[in-house]
Amino acid sequence: MDTDTKLKYLRTEKLPHIWCPGCGHGIILGALLKSFDKLGWEKNDIVVVSGIGCSGRTPGYIDANTLHTTHGRALAFATGIKMVNPALHVVVVMGDGDASAIGGNHLIHAARRNIDLTAIVFNNNIYGMTGGQYSPTTPFGAKASTAPYGNIEPNFDLVELAMGAGATYVARATSYHEAILEKYIQNALLHKGFSFIDVYTTCPTQFGRLNKIKSPIDNIFMLRDKAIMKSKAEKMSPEEIKGKVLIGEFRNDKEKREYTELYDEIIRRATKKEM
């Protein structure tokens, strides 16, 4: 049943995928495909947009309208699509470099506008495809191919970033907690406005290798061990939370007006010649 569901939205002829054994990207893709099915969305109405890197290859495997753009710019391309045809369901998948380094500006502004896009960050704390360079989400002290002595940059908390910028649905899950991830993706897809999910995931080939987390399964256990549900963390002391990653739904605001709807009002006023 589960396999059939995933296959329904997959371009099976494009398999096998390019991702390494132990990579979490496939799990996120699977959760997305199952969510489409649960919601009963028509393939023709779905647009999936990506940037560059391992996550950038995701749309290629999805049987929908798919667009693989330039590095960091997926949200800006998606904004154009959504503006012109608000009836389309537009999902944007990005890596941590895409979303928070080269495309950080687009992330905060898409969030601020509250345009109805669903942004999913495949956050493996590293630039995987280019060889393991440190990203804005690489933890302090972690090793990367461009941080051989350890990373001295504080890392971004993407949930805080998205909330600060005004996103109206914000959640974090991991590729280990698949059921939770799927639920959040569905909530995000149904949300009218800018929805954002930070998905903490693995890159055994780069992050694991450089940080002595050897086997793929150890990388997956890292997610299990580091993640704490937000509700649970609220009852814990700061010392206990230190070094952990909080997962959960952080915001679900249904009040703020959505951008394309507001623009439709502009059109109504302009056609009636009201300034």
Binding site: L67, T69, A76, F77, T79, G80, I81, M83, V84, H106
Partner: peptide, 21 residues
């Protein structure tokens, strides 16, 4: 529809998206 994007790069990206739509 008109949109003032956050920068010039985004403007070019958005019109490609708009045209594809």
């Amino acid at each position: 529809k008109f949109i003032q994007m956050e920068d010039e790069i985004a403007s070019m990206a958005a019109i490609i998206g708009g045209s594809l739509a």
